Simulated scan of single mutants.
Amino acid sequence: MKYRLIYTALLSALVLSCGGGSDPDPDPDPPVVIPAPSAASLIFPDDNTECNEGTIVNETQSTVTFRWSDSENTDSYQVNLRNLDNNNTSRTNSSINSADITILRGVPYEWFVVSRADGTNETASSPTWRFYNQGPGVENYAPFPADVVSPERGATVATAVTVSLVWAGSDVDNDLEDFEVFFGTDSAALASLGTTTESTFDAAVESGMVYYWRIVSRDSQGNTSQSEIFDFRVQ
Rank of each mutant, 00 (worst) to 15 (best):
M1A: 09
Y3N: 14
Y7T: 08
A9M: 13
A13L: 15
L16T: 12
S17I: 12
S17G: 02
C18D: 00
G19Y: 08
G20S: 10
G20Y: 10
G20V: 13
S22E: 06
D23K: 12
D23I: 11
D25F: 11
P26L: 12
P28A: 10
D29I: 09
P30H: 01
A39D: 02
S41I: 14
L42S: 04
I43L: 14
F44P: 01
F44T: 07
P45V: 15
D46Y: 01
D47F: 05
N48G: 04
C51K: 08
N52Q: 04
N52F: 04
N52R: 06
E53Q: 07
T55A: 14
I56L: 15
V57Y: 08
S62K: 08
T63R: 13
V64R: 14
T65L: 08
S69Q: 13
S69V: 05
D70G: 05
S71L: 08
E72L: 12
E72C: 02
Q78I: 00
N83S: 03
L84S: 09
D85A: 12
T89Y: 00
S90N: 05
S98A: 03
A99R: 13
I103S: 02
R105S: 06
P108E: 05
P108K: 11
P108M: 10
E110G: 05
W111V: 01
F112P: 00
V114F: 00
V114W: 00
D118T: 10
G119W: 03
G119D: 05
G119E: 08
T120V: 12
E122V: 15
E122Y: 10
S125D: 05
S125C: 04
W129L: 07
F131V: 12
N133Q: 10
N133P: 02
G135R: 12
P136R: 11
G137C: 10
N140H: 13
A142S: 09
P143W: 06
F144V: 08
P145G: 08
A146R: 02
V149E: 05
V149I: 14
G154S: 06
G154H: 04
T156A: 07
A158R: 06
A160K: 04
L165H: 04
L165Y: 06
A168K: 14
G169D: 02
S170V: 03
S170G: 06
D171V: 11
N174W: 00
D175W: 03
D178E: 14
F179W: 15
E180I: 15
E180C: 12
F183C: 12
T185W: 04
S187I: 11
L190K: 03
A191L: 06
S192Y: 06
T197K: 11
T197D: 06
E198M: 12
E198L: 13
A204N: 11
E206D: 07
S207I: 15
G208E: 01
M209H: 07
Y212A: 13
W213E: 03
V216L: 12
V216F: 04
S217Y: 01
S217L: 11
S217M: 08
D219I: 14
G222K: 09
G222A: 05
N223A: 12
Q226E: 10
S227K: 04
E228P: 01
F232N: 05
F232S: 09
V234E: 04
